[in-house]
């Protein structure tokens, strides 16, 4: 499996040192991203989904401590990479799109300047060459009259347009992996549909692997082929998109799906919320992080953390599944 894996993460633990304690944001995550796949990471705020990918990128503040057994990207060990080596990977082999298109572009530089930067640095292009390529990428993401647009500043673009520019910058060096952290959360639904369509299109054309981080199950369902569900700094379930939505194994995934009000159903069903709130990661519970909110919790759930178990090719971390296996 790790043979064709582009990104291989084993036992990733990321914690933040705060003034009043240590927050264990990611508590042992194993994850592989295959070449050219569209992977979704879904979970609620504070579940560790963003921190996992930011750890890979090495884009965390100084108070963060990253530990892992393995962290390789395309055969390169990221744990031992120097800042200089990391910089040569950023924007070249791994592109990243952030949530807020309003703050992720520099307001003092033109769009052209920001688009040409990775091309000049990583591809060592001449100014005129980079400008031509920048105009091409801008056109590719659906921005008309690119030559004029290159001379404009971010404030002259709408939110949806800025997110297109972000995608253009991230894709300009044809990266092997694109990490998109809530790329459509700040956008309206009609603009979100445009951006998702664009990302799907770009992925198909370039063969780039995409990791999409979101809290929106609808977004996952419309673009991803494989899904990872995270909760309390751990992976709860992992599998093909269809399996996760139609036949979820983990009680948390089931709860998450039940609390979404569907658009299709004319019948008014009562929403089934998950009671309580997510665990405090400064003092994480001993056992399964979901045990306190789980309707099926047993004694063992509070005592020991279940490992991701393979069940017919699908992975879930729940004691109920393990018990069935051994029984």
């Amino acid at each position: 499996m790790s043979g064709d894996a582009l990104l291989h993460i084993k036992n990733l633990r990321t914690s933040f040192l705060m003034s009043d304690g240590v927050v264990q944001a990611v508590r042992g995550v194993d994850l592989s991203v295959k070449r050219g796949e569209f992977l979704g990471i879904v979970g609620e705020s504070g579940c560790g989904k963003s921190v996992t990918m930011l750890s890979v990128m090495g884009l965390l503040p100084d108070n963060a401590a990253i530990k892992a057994d393995t962290l390789t990207f395309d055969g390169k060990d990221l744990l031992s990479a120097s800042p200089r080596e990391m910089r040569s990977i950023h924007g070249d082999e791994i592109g990243m799109i952030f949530q807020d298109p309003m703050t992720s572009l520099d307001p003092l530089f033109t769009i052209g300047n920001q688009l040409m930067e990775p091309l000049r640095i990583h591809r060592k292009m001449s100014a005129s060459e980079a400008e031509r390529r920048a105009a091409e990428t801008l056109e590719m993401v659906g921005i008309s009259s690119p030559a004029q647009r290159l001379k404009q500043y971010p404030h002259e673009f709408s939110g949806g347009m800025r997110q297109r520019v972000m995608i253009a910058i991230a894709m300009s060096c044809s990266p092997k992996l694109l990490i998109a952290d809530e790329p459509t959360t700040a956008l309206d639904v009609t603009i979100q549909a445009q951006i998702l369509e664009l990302m799907k299109d770009m992925k198909e054309k370039s063969g780039t692997a995409v990791v999409l981080i979101t809290h929106d199950l609808g977004v996952i369902a419309s673009v991803c082929s494989r899904v990872v569900v995270m909760y309390g700094g751990l992976i709860m379930e992992e599998g093909e998109c269809g399996d996760i939505f139609y036949d979820p194994l983990h009680p948390y995934t089931k709860g998450l799906l039940a609390s979404v009000s569907g658009m299709g159903s004319g019948e008014k069903k009562k929403l089934v919320p998950i009671p309580g709130s997510p665990p405090d990661l400064m003092n994480p519970p001993d056992g399964c992080p979901f045990a306190a909110r789980c309707a099926f919790a047993m004694k063992i759930c509070a005592a020991a953390t279940p490992k991701l178990t393979n069940r017919g090719g699908r992975l879930a971390a729940c004691w109920m599944l393990r018990r069935k296996l051994t029984a």
Binding site: S158, Q192, A221, S222, F245, V260, M263
Partner: peptide, 22 residues
């Protein structure tokens, strides 16, 4: 039609009307 439904099969078959512009 722009709202993504939490249903991968429906997402594949449904025809979306994607509005242009802002």
């Amino acid at each position: 039609s722009a709202v993504p439904a939490a249903d991968p099969e429906a997402a594949k078959t449904r025809r979306r009307i994607i509005l242009e512009g802002d």
